[in-house]
């Protein structure tokens, strides 16, 4: 349905009076999303997952690479043909209030894509908007309110209704539940799951919240410093992670028993700057399993199983396994 090929997005930033450098936000990423699937995009702040989401929907042009939607390369489209496809590709943002026009009644916000893309006759619009409100669990009484009059959960539902209005096929959700309280979040997650079925959506779900990703997605792509380091079915990524970075990330997921205080697998130091990332394997400076080859050879995604890819030669060649992560964790415990 949607495929991203060798996608690169660099941002120039001024680092001095006469110097600009490149922030390598997304640096050569490839993946595809199948029809009806939910792909999770996880990683820590600054790993490039939000940039990737925006570029994949062509909200921003990439530096290089291709984005294919049903065999059309979106990166080559401009103007009218691109506008024609827009309704099919929708996005829901993290900050619901910031992504809604404060001077528009929320019903107008939801109606906007219908008007813009001539998707409903003027007299049908009100009915369509009411329908959408109903689908996302908003009461009719809120139709004529302004965004600031609604709660965070309600604002996010308006954002979802707006994205659903033009009958999209692909929906990218960027941390849609992160700003919400536990009980509000739970309701929204249930709603998103139901809508995916009802509208036959293909979703890319971006989040740093691994519990939500584990619950909602079919496959997961793990990002570190602008690159995908591991890609596979959600259960495999969570239960049998192969890349040391994924191992550390998953070790931090709260399990069934919240009171479990076993030591977790920790990586020393912090994520380096995406301006000058480590040249070969980007995790090398922090990786407990590092070898000389990791500092010399760029790592590419290789299969450990047909549907499970990892960008670590030691994992791909069977030198390290999830048991080694467990052993390293236990060593930290003493």
């Amino acid at each position: 349905m949607l495929a991203v090929e060798k996608l690169v997005k660099h941002y120039p930033i001024k680092t001095g009076a006469f110097r600009t450098e490149q922030v390598r936000a997304v640096d050569g990423v490839s993946f595809s999303v199948r029809r009806g699937e939910t792909l999770g995009l996880v990683g820590e702040s600054g790993c490039g997952k939000s940039t990737l989401g925006r570029v994949a929907l062509r909200l921003e042009p990439p530096t290089s690479g291709a984005v294919r939607y049903r065999d059309v390369d979106l990166t080559r489209l401009r103007g009218r043909p691109l506008r024609h496809l827009r309704p099919k590709l929708q996005m829901v943002f993290q900050d619901p209030l910031g992504s809604l026009n404060p001077r528009m009644k929320v019903s107008q916000t939801v109606a906007e894509p219908l008007v813009l893309h001539h998707l409903a006759a003027p007299r049908e619009i009100r009915t369509r908007v009411r329908e959408l409100f109903d689908r996302v669990g908003l009461s009719d009484e809120l139709l004529d309110r302004y965004p600031h009059e609604l709660s965070g959960g309600q604002q996010q539902r308006v954002g979802i209704a707006r994205a659903l209005a033009p009958h999209p096929e692909v929906m990218v959700l960027d941390e849609p539940t992160s700003a919400l309280d536990v009980s509000v979040q739970a309701k929204l997650i249930n709603l998103l799951r139901r809508l995916k079925e009802d509208f036959d959506l293909t979703q890319v779900f971006i989040s740093h919240d691994l519990s939500v990703i584990g619950y909602l997605t079919d496959r997961v792509a793990v990002m570190y410093l602008g690159e995908i380091v591991e890609l596979g079915p959600t259960a495999k990524i969570f239960l049998m992670p192969r890349h040391p970075y994924t191992g550390a990330l998953m070790s931090a997921v709260p399990g069934e028993d919240l009171l479990d205080r076993r030591t977790r697998l920790m990586l020393p130091g912090e994520v380096p700057s995406p301006i000058n990332p480590p040249p070969a394997c980007r995790l090398a400076p922090r990786c407990p399993f590092v070898k000389d080859r990791c500092r010399e050879e760029k790592q590419v995604l290789r299969p450990v199983e047909p549907d499970h890819l990892v960008a670590c030669w030691r994992a791909a060649e069977g030198e390290i396994s999830p048991e080694d992560f467990e052993r390293t964790r236990l060593a930290l415990e003493v």
């Binding site: 009980s183 979040q185 739970a186 997650i189 249930n190 799951r193 584990g214 959600t234 259960a235 997921v253």
Partner: peptide, 12 residues
Amino acid sequence: SRPRLGLQGDIL
């Protein structure tokens, strides 16, 4: 009301 891996059906 916590979402998690392997949870079937709706979250309470």
